[in-house]
Design a protein around this nucleic acid. Structure first.
Lengths: 147, 147
DNA sequence: GGAAGTAGGCACCTAAAAGTGCGTAGGGCA
DNA sequence: TGCCCTACGCACTTTTAGGTGCCTACTTCC
């Protein structure tokens, strides 16, 4: 007995929509880069370090060691750094190289795909720097208005 | 007694780094757009609906009603739709207008700032569509290699 | 010979985001 | 006359990203 035909219809389209969402490349990209440390690592390997406020951050991509990254991204835990680097390596965005020096060291570097992504993120950063002030301002007026 | 001087040094830089992160505009932008429904709502109001696979999605921004959005984004719960719309309105990215028709209706529309953000997200979407396949492929090879 | 660096692994815990379910108040409609 | 529509609000639960702490083996330095 079809007590609720409209509801049934909606449930169906919801299932389809969820399936669509799961396969959506934009969605996956957002999931990929919205991790707390992903953008930071990409920025560090792309040589626009967050600790130089003055420069315009157009450095060459370079390779960095695990401990070097750990010091640069001062707030990151070892677990999260390892985890994030692994997932980035898995996706072919960074490459990992073990160097058999006296104490063994590991270096990480952006791949071509990673460099491409890093450039896109730089565009995102540009938008943020030019427009986020407006957003913050709007937020403030909205909050005071709601008093 | 300074048992661990290096550790103390790291703790200090961690605090500074965390403070830096909290104020970073790029970080805030990522937090803003990485919400599950944010990009979908922006896309819907910007008229590149996710359900038209063929077109190149260069439509005009248009205003939509709450229920219209709710049907288009079939998977969204009413709570999340309201919550996300509110936060977008708070940030000045969409505008809300109550229309006193027979049953009261509410329409939402992109502001100029919202349109600007939407254009940037479209660039992100372009990157995703051209490169995410590679990422998925890399992921697959990595996983099989790790067997 | 204990501290510190080398690059992590493993288990548990927390806090925030998202989902679920129920209620509203007024009206249309079969 | 009892259900559905409008656009939500509120309380509860689930999921998961991220954090904390403790462990490894080996080596060098003081």
């Amino acid at each position: 007995m079809a007590t609720t035909t409209a509801a049934r219809q909606r449930a169906q389209s919801k299932v389809e929509y969820d399936a669509f969402l799961a396969a959506c490349p934009s969605r996956e990209l957002l999931n990929r880069i919205s991790g707390k440390w992903v953008a930071l690592i990409l920025a560090a390997l792309g040589s626009d370090g967050p600790h130089r406020p003055g420069d315009d951050c157009a450095g060459e991509p370079r390779s960095m060691r695990y401990s070097e990254l750990s010091r640069m991204l001062a707030g990151v835990s070892q677990k999260m750094l390892t985890q994030t680097l692994r997932s980035l390596e898995r996706d072919g965005l960074v490459s990992r190289a073990v160097v058999p020096t006296v104490p063994i060291t590991v270096t990480y570097e952006l791949t071509d795909l990673g460099i491409s992504l890093h450039r896109m993120i730089r565009g995102l950063k540009t938008w943020a720097e030019t427009h986020m002030d407006d957003v913050i301002a709007n937020r403030a007026t909205y909050d005071t208005r709601a008093d």
